[in-house]
Write a protein that binds this DNA or RNA. Sequence first.
DNA 1: TTGAAAGCGCTAACAT
DNA 2: ATGTTAGCGCTTTCAA
Lengths: 344, 344
Amino acid sequence: MSNMTIKDIAEKAGVSKSTVSRVINNTGYVSGQIRERVNRIINEYAYQPSAIARGLSTKDSCMIGVVVPTASDGFFGRILEGISEVADKKGYTVMFCTTDNDPAKEQRALATMRGQRVRGLLITPAAGYLSTDGFSKLRSALENLGIPVVLIDRAAKNLNWDGVYFDNFNGAYIATENIVRSGYKKIGTITSDTSLQLGSDRLAGFRQALADAGIREDERFILTSNQPISTQQAFRMTCDWIRDGRLPEAVLLSNGAIVNGFLKAILAHGLSPDRDVYTVGFDYVQAVDILNMRYSYLSRDADNMGRIAMQMLLDHFDQKIPSRREYIVPAKLIVRECGGQQRQ
Amino acid sequence: MSNMTIKDIAEKAGVSKSTVSRVINNTGYVSGQIRERVNRIINEYAYQPSAIARGLSTKDSCMIGVVVPTASDGFFGRILEGISEVADKKGYTVMFCTTDNDPAKEQRALATMRGQRVRGLLITPAAGYLSTDGFSKLRSALENLGIPVVLIDRAAKNLNWDGVYFDNFNGAYIATENIVRSGYKKIGTITSDTSLQLGSDRLAGFRQALADAGIREDERFILTSNQPISTQQAFRMTCDWIRDGRLPEAVLLSNGAIVNGFLKAILAHGLSPDRDVYTVGFDYVQAVDILNMRYSYLSRDADNMGRIAMQMLLDHFDQKIPSRREYIVPAKLIVRECGGQQRQ
DNA sequence: TTGAAAGCGCTAACAT
DNA sequence: ATGTTAGCGCTTTCAA
């Protein structure tokens, strides 16, 4: 038989459904003898209780929802990995949806999650919410869920839910500080997504560090966009810097794609990524290992962010105290000297 | 009220549950007037039917299961992305589990999927199944599911399910052929995971192409492992080649990690990735763009593999004919000349 | 220690 | 065109 029910098992074992239910869930009293008999039947027929029926009955789906912009991006993939790891361990199964950074798809994803009666939600909001009113739709959709929500990576103003974020401001700050202390004066940056909290924080951290060091900003060294900046665009921007003869002595680059474009331009002009410029960026990129070059970076341990987020959700399930916590993953600068050891 | 039920809506609208059900599902007859009234109530209370209850009743969960080794790997992330895309579009929601290439975790994942009564399963088997008997456990677990299954990327002998695979043999073959035609004689390879079908196919394709070209194999140029080869290991292997003065004129590298290690070694020895060796590999790696180097590669369009796999599942749902199809994604070699255009 | 019965929120005959 | 009823496969009182 393809899918046995609890009733089938009960009959084969000559007991009632309740009894079978008890042995399955290890609840209530049931004699050792019967327990054994039932278990034998269960194994014999490889019976697997329907989580759906159980969910309907207990009003607990034991599912959690994960809504992220994309899975193909390494960062979110690793977050998903971390979430999945602790969810599995705790007996929750994860429902997965992708938004493509599209608010409309996000709304649909949330409706799906609501329909599935997930017990909690982990979400990285679709981009572009800093000012628009699409943002208030997210807020009310989240509120309508009526379940614990943990935001991941992208904070949105006035969104009063738990969250785990990277400390972007301080990350940019200590990175810039490191540059300053290394003795550089002509310091530049290419920072993208300034329309996201994440982006504006990075830019702000950079500026604050310069200010605190008493270094006057040179606007020609500060390239920003409120949109994502592609590798290709970063390449061009850097080429312009070089062509105009004003490549900064050191740069802070706000993500891996930008680092790649920057390095491409450096190499294309026959410059040395070790001697001609000091590169500091957000996120590790494979190329620096291959080039065996000097590179300092802020590593956003994504797996761990996922694990922490899931853990926060679990905490919510346990103590039903409605809390409002933010976990800010502390920024740590990893300094990779020229010829430094390989990141495994 | 947090979660309304169909009964609540029915009462507010002054109709029966059946009627509400009819308007929700757009089935059967219902007068325009009543339909409108019900819809008003539904919207007013933002009622979202329970997919769980519906699933129980219709015996269709509208869920599909995805079981992959990891999400943090870019390849599987993109596969997941592709799956997710068409699943969303067709109204299926995806349950996600990770196996970490561990057969035990895989078994647990399958049990979970069975419990959730997913309608179909997309799976990349945990590694190491070519010979072991853990393999037969997979087979029976899959059979016990009693639902359509589509294998992704990793074929396993005697596993009689639909599948979408990359044409690894021909990929390696045409890649090697390309090398031969380019006039190289001393041709080497670093091939990992030969214990997987995927790995042994790549090695076989390489050998066949050499044989067909009448080039005798030089075993010193052929480095293989039945395990994954890390970037670090590939680096060492290449260093050994160089140190011993027998770096091949051209190489076929079986994945991105190996390419990275190889390039690192080339650069570390002051060699030119353009002039001193012709590199051909499986998968694109970012570094070749940065280095703006000559590189030919077999691109395994992962998003598309995911989409195709999901589509095969859907086909199964429609025509309940138990078929057995294999979709072999044709291999295509992308030749990237030195200074070639950037892959966007 | 076990069983009977009601109910979870929906759908789907079957009546009307 | 709409309502009634009987499940779907479980859990959980409540009795026995």
